[in-house]
Amino acid sequence: MAALLNKIPEKLSITERLAERFGPKEQKATSLDVQRQTMSIKAAFRLKIEGECWNPPSGALDAGKLIVVVNFNLSQDGRIIGQPRADDYARMSGPLKVAADSALRAVRMCAPYSDLKLPKDMYDQWKEIKLTFDPSDMLS
């Protein structure tokens, strides 16, 4: 963490923001830190994918009920390893498949995730991501 601080990037990473807030006094992350870090990582993903990348299909009958789960793995530098996978994609058809396509496009559009400055020392915590795309709040 201290090493990361020395870089002085234009935008502070989550780790850096946390470090600034809680101080680099602890060398080892506590579970409470992990919890906070995880929340921040989640928020960063959400902000990026919701704000920049997801273009949900609208207008379909019951478009708001088309919920899709996408899993993918990240490398340490924030690239997607392999392909993102939508649960049950092979069995999908029609509007649900289109919803899955839009979720997969969002994940790929947003990659790489290096700009989120994910804390490398917590790589194990974010190397596997599971996103649930649920448009029910925005389409009804």
Partner: peptide, 9 residues
């Protein structure tokens, strides 16, 4: 696994 809900687009 980090689980995140994406509810806006």
């Amino acid at each position: 696994v980090i689980e995140i809900d994406i509810t806006k687009g």
